[in-house]
Computed example of a mutant assay.
Amino acid sequence: MHYPVRVLFLCTGNSARSQMAEGLLRTLGGNDFEVHSAGLEPQELNPRAVKAMAESNIDISGQHSKHLNEFLDIQFDYVITVCDRARDSCPTFPRDSENIHWGYDDPAAAQGTEEEKLAVFRRVRNEIRQRLGIWIPVMRKKLRDRGLV
């Protein structure tokens, strides 16, 4: 029996951080995870997020911003907020989801030249990848320990 861990990444705009996290977990986690992202005030997918992810050979250009309300009837194992505003505005999620907060700087708010702005997206992408590199093996061990994979 295979049980994918159902994860929702949540941020304010669902335009950068949560989108990158969704793409990273989908790629790094494979079939062990069912992953979605949403925002409290969805905005268009940020092209710098798409570019930063493409540099890591992950294509998120087909993803789109979604409102949290689209997911209120879905049971998630983990709801991971990736910005402080989402955590503060939505501190708990319906049902029995485990809520986790991983705060990252908002790359969309970066100032400077195009290259300086893109550097912030790259840094945040790398920070998310690093965190997932620790979290994914822990989740896989939990699944194995429960006999679910």
Rank of each mutant, 00 (worst) to 15 (best):
residue 3 Y to H: 13
residue 3 Y to C: 11
residue 4 P to A: 06
residue 4 P to R: 04
residue 4 P to F: 07
residue 6 R to V: 08
residue 7 V to N: 09
residue 9 F to N: 09
residue 9 F to Y: 12
residue 10 L to G: 05
residue 11 C to W: 03
residue 13 G to N: 11
residue 15 S to P: 04
residue 16 A to L: 05
residue 16 A to F: 05
residue 18 S to F: 12
residue 18 S to N: 11
residue 21 A to H: 01
residue 21 A to Y: 05
residue 21 A to G: 07
residue 22 E to W: 07
residue 24 L to Q: 04
residue 27 T to M: 03
residue 27 T to F: 06
residue 28 L to P: 02
residue 29 G to M: 09
residue 30 G to E: 09
residue 30 G to V: 09
residue 30 G to T: 11
residue 33 F to W: 01
residue 33 F to M: 01
residue 34 E to C: 03
residue 34 E to Q: 12
residue 35 V to K: 12
residue 38 A to L: 10
residue 38 A to G: 03
residue 40 L to D: 07
residue 40 L to Q: 10
residue 44 E to H: 06
residue 44 E to K: 12
residue 45 L to T: 14
residue 48 R to A: 03
residue 49 A to S: 13
residue 53 M to K: 00
residue 54 A to W: 06
residue 55 E to F: 00
residue 55 E to G: 07
residue 56 S to I: 03
residue 57 N to C: 10
residue 59 D to N: 15
residue 60 I to H: 06
residue 62 G to Q: 14
residue 63 Q to S: 03
residue 64 H to L: 07
residue 65 S to A: 15
residue 67 H to S: 12
residue 67 H to I: 01
residue 68 L to N: 02
residue 68 L to D: 00
residue 68 L to I: 15
residue 69 N to C: 03
residue 71 F to R: 07
residue 71 F to A: 10
residue 74 I to G: 06
residue 75 Q to C: 05
residue 75 Q to G: 14
residue 76 F to P: 11
residue 76 F to N: 08
residue 77 D to V: 08
residue 78 Y to K: 12
residue 79 V to F: 11
residue 79 V to A: 10
residue 82 V to G: 01
residue 82 V to Q: 01
residue 83 C to N: 11
residue 83 C to T: 13
residue 84 D to A: 14
residue 85 R to E: 13
residue 87 R to A: 15
residue 88 D to A: 10
residue 90 C to M: 15
residue 90 C to K: 15
residue 91 P to H: 06
residue 92 T to R: 13
residue 92 T to D: 04
residue 92 T to H: 13
residue 93 F to L: 12
residue 94 P to M: 04
residue 95 R to F: 15
residue 96 D to K: 14
residue 97 S to P: 13
residue 100 I to F: 00
residue 101 H to S: 13
residue 102 W to C: 06
residue 102 W to I: 05
residue 102 W to Y: 12
residue 103 G to H: 04
residue 104 Y to G: 10
residue 105 D to C: 03
residue 108 A to M: 06
residue 109 A to F: 07
residue 110 A to M: 04
residue 111 Q to K: 11
residue 111 Q to L: 08
residue 112 G to D: 06
residue 119 A to L: 00
residue 120 V to G: 02
residue 120 V to P: 01
residue 122 R to E: 02
residue 123 R to N: 03
residue 123 R to E: 08
residue 128 I to C: 02
residue 131 R to E: 14
residue 133 G to C: 08
residue 133 G to T: 08
residue 135 W to C: 08
residue 135 W to T: 12
residue 135 W to K: 03
residue 137 P to D: 02
residue 138 V to E: 06
residue 139 M to S: 07
residue 140 R to P: 09
residue 141 K to F: 09
residue 141 K to P: 02
residue 141 K to M: 12
residue 141 K to R: 14
residue 142 K to D: 08
residue 145 D to R: 11
residue 145 D to F: 01
residue 147 G to E: 09
residue 147 G to R: 14
residue 148 L to C: 05
residue 148 L to S: 05
residue 149 V to W: 08
residue 149 V to L: 14
residue 149 V to N: 11
